[in-house]
Design a protein around this nucleic acid. Structure first.
Length: 570
RNA sequence: GUGCCUGUAGCUCAGUGGAUUAGAGCAUUUGUCUACGGAACAAAGGGCCGGGGGUUCGAAUCCCUCCAGGCACACCA
């Protein structure tokens, strides 16, 4: 049973065909069948509203169409009843015995629970974090890290072969600034009277460079006193990457592949990209844009020319510089080369998680890919709005270069890796997040992450108790299980639908809300369906224990999909 | 000014064109209960879904427009 939604949809499709063959319905093209749980649970477990949509095409009243469909729905083991409700709904109710029979399957599924074959045989790549190694990860980056990693987990569950990639740029001006800053810190560590200039855009003010400098002095003494910025850049970069990877590990993120932008220069891709654009007549050499007025052109006629990508021809609002007047490329050229490279690696799906400030950049890259004949439709860009930090009711400004940012490490120290993951996951990527630091610190008891994990802890507690008492549920008769436990089972069985939806829309927050709903359904039951206690029939107790084993597996799986831990005690 | 995103309960947010009643959490009020771990459960109050038009049998959801907020609009990366 891969998906109950699909199973119901198939029933509808076949019923329509059968009704048409029998002459109960006229011939008409059936739109894609959409099945949903009704808003009002008393109406049933799943509902089809399509009879309303096809009424015109069929030339019949919706209620009559629904009747005709219902009449031809083939019996299925999971269906208890099919009802028609005005003005034209077909409502399905799941069979209790069938639901009970799923409990052992759930308990045995372990970490494959909810897995799909949607992406079978397909390869997906998720590129995320991709922070240049100029400073520790700050909170703004961590949202993308968590969203990207969870998308990767969901795609894996959906059956894709997934690669997590980290793209880094150690060839730009910022890295030179880092090298220069590091050099000054090194000289300071040697006791020389040098000051780090306060220019934030050019010199990195963060304390971490002092620490690196101390270590470098310990390793190399004063042997580098005459060395150039490149030496210091390389050292700082290496140390910084170590820090970043360590931080990511704390929130259970590990990349499979680190892609160095330099390699695109080394293997000639950047040049090849420029030449390919030139061949297509999409590059021109001029001091200013072609679209500028004659007046501006005349004024700037003596300035050194740059090379412009005629992206307006692809639909852009203005042309973009790809090669500056000093001959160095802007980000655009290597980024286009990079995306062509990704496409050439044969991924069926490419996901790129970016901050809102990268929107324009990504558009230009996409125009470039299109211009070069790349299959741009395989590239899915997730644009995330920013995380705003609030402390004492006021916004805290973040800046990597300045040094007064909040790092992801700080945040994990103050809360927990699970809390950070859940709080940054449980909202739609295109809404801005206000992260209240004071609340995050003291909120540990209110945080929904504990509510969800507590459901798992309670299951673990029951299982522990059963083991201590030597109580075995393997031969339980699930017919003895209380009816009120069945809505929970039904909800567990929709995990696959949630994974499918979240993976296809690249909206991982759905899994967070699903987890909360599941925990809510669980806690209600826990209060009412005790396994151990006076006056509980042992057969009922055994069935309940079997049920809690399934619940235990369900929460483990859901927490795992969110990259969260599963503590047995809290 | 142009492009993208957002506007839903006091606060933080879900909501995949469907059912005369728009959902959670927090906060507020009231109960349960001292547990297989109460970081729980049950219940109540609280809403012109930013405003206005339109499409549709049917709109928080799609389209137009206005208002408000955020982000981006460099020969920075």
């Amino acid at each position: 049973m891969e998906s109950l939604l699909n199973a119901h949809a198939t029933l509808i499709e076949n019923a329509v065909k059968a009704a048409q063959a029998a002459g109960d319905l006229p011939a008409f093209a059936l739109p894609a069948v959409e099945i949903k749980p009704p808003n009002r649970p008393e109406m049933g477990d799943y509902a089809y509203a399509g009879a309303l949509a096809v009424a015109k095409a069929a030339g019949m009243k919706p209620i009559d169409i629904a009747q005709a469909i219902a009449k031809h729905i083939a019996p299925a083991p999971f269906i208890a009843s099919v009802e028609v409700a005005p003005p034209g709904f077909v409502n399905f109710r799941l069979d209790g015995a069938w639901l009970r029979a799923q409990i052992p399957n759930i308990a045995n599924a372990a970490d494959t629970l909810g897995n799909l074959t949607l992406g079978k045989g397909k390869r997906a790549q998720v590129e995320f974090v991709s922070a240049n190694p100029t400073g520790p990860l700050h909170i703004g980056r961590s949202r993308g890290a968590i969203v990207g990693d969870t998308i990767a987990r969901l795609l894996e569950a959906a059956g894709y072969e997934v690669e997590r990639e980290y793209y880094f740029n150690n060839a730009g001006m910022q890295m030179r600034h880092l090298g220069n800053s590091m050099r000054i810190r090194y000289l300071q560590a040697l006791g020389l009277p040098v000051e780090l200039p306060k220019e934030e855009g050019t010199f990195y003010q963060g304390e971490y460079l002092r620490e690196f400098a101390q270590q470098l002095v310990a390793e190399r003494g004063d042997s580098l006193a005459e060395a150039g910025w490149e030496t210091f850049k390389e050292y700082a970069e290496r140390k910084m990457f170590g820090m970043i990877r360590q931080t990511l590990e704390r929130i259970h993120i590990e990349h499979d592949h680190f892609f160095n932008e330099n390699s695109l220069y080394d293997d000639g891709s950047v040049n090849a990209t420029l030449e390919a654009l030139q061949e297509r007549d999409l590059i021109y050499v001029a001091p200013v844009r072609e679209s500028e007025t004659d007046e501006v052109k005349a004024k700037s006629a003596n300035q050194a020319p740059a090379q412009w990508f005629r992206s307006t021809r692809l639909g852009d609002t203005e042309d973009r510089v790809v090669l500056k007047s000093d001959g160095s490329p802007t980000y655009t050229l290597p980024d286009i080369a990079y995306h062509m490279n990704k496409l050439a690696r044969g991924f069926d799906v490419l996901v790129n998680v970016l901050g809102a400030d990268h929107y324009t950049e990504h558009q230009v890259v996409k125009y470039g890919v299109q211009a070069l004949g790349g299959e741009a439709s395989r590239i899915h860009v997730i644009i995330m709005q920013f995380v705003r930090l609030i402390r004492e009711g006021r916004e805290v400004k973040m800046s990597t270069r300045r040094g007064d940012y909040e790092t992801l490490d700080d945040l994990i120290d103050q809360t927990s890796s699970d809390a950070v993951r859940y709080m940054l996951l449980a909202r739609n990527a295109n809404s801005r997040v206000d992260f209240d630091l004071d609340l995050a610190v003291k909120q540990s008891t209110d945080n929904p992450v504990y509510y969800i994990q507590y459901a798992y802890v309670r299951c673990a507690g029951i299982l522990r108790e059963a083991e201590a008492r030597g109580f075995d549920a393997s031969a339980a008769d699930l017919a003895q299980l209380d009816d009120e436990a069945l809505p929970f089972v039904r909800r567990v069985l929709t995990l696959g639908d949630t994974i499918a939806y979240a993976a296809q829309t690249f909206e991982p927050h759905h899994i967070a809300f699903y987890a909360h709903d599941l925990a809510s359904a669980f806690h209600t039951l826990y209060d009412r369906l005790r396994v151990f206690g006076d006056g509980i029939d042992p057969h009922v107790a055994a069935a309940r224990l079997r049920f809690y084993q399934a619940a235990h597996v369900s929460f483990k799986r859901v927490l795992g999909l969110m990259g969260m831990s599963t503590p047995d005690r809290m």
